[in-house]
Amino acid sequence: MKHTLSVMVENKPGVLARIAGLFSRRGFNIDSLAVGVTENPDVSRMTITVNAAEHPIEQVTKQLHKLINVIKITDLDPDNTVARELALIKVKSDARSRGEVMQIAEIFRAKILDVSRKTMTIEITGTAEKIEALELLLKPNVAEIVRTGRIAIERGEK
């Protein structure tokens, strides 16, 4: 089962390496990872998605807690969480196909960021499924994709 862990850490050098090391050491594969500072500049939040059963996720959470720089870990409940990721997709497209690509982008409420003679770059924000759906539609012409990894926050008041 896929888990989204929201990990608050002290904003100090080496913290990312400690966390990444712990996951690999305990036999977990990180699906995606996004890091950024929070409203408190001394604290960063890592959003880590990982595929694991209940018992191993509990074990890795406990091990994460033992890292001195880790302040708080939440295994986000998918029903009570809003999650987004962002992707930049570069599509091969010339004058003939440009209109079609723009139409598809519009359906997905994606933005066109850059247009060149032979390519277009699209920005899309949404769930992983939405991004994958767009990717599927554009597939034969996709030149490059960059994805951020998921960020997530709990719904409602803190």
Binding site: P13, G14, A17, R18, K66, L67, I68
Partner: peptide, 16 residues
């Protein structure tokens, strides 16, 4: 050495 010992320390520091 902080990198090398990372899996075998409770914590480590590099003084800057």
């Amino acid at each position: 050495i902080t990198g090398i010992t990372e899996p075998v320390v409770k914590h480590s520091y590099l003084i800057k």
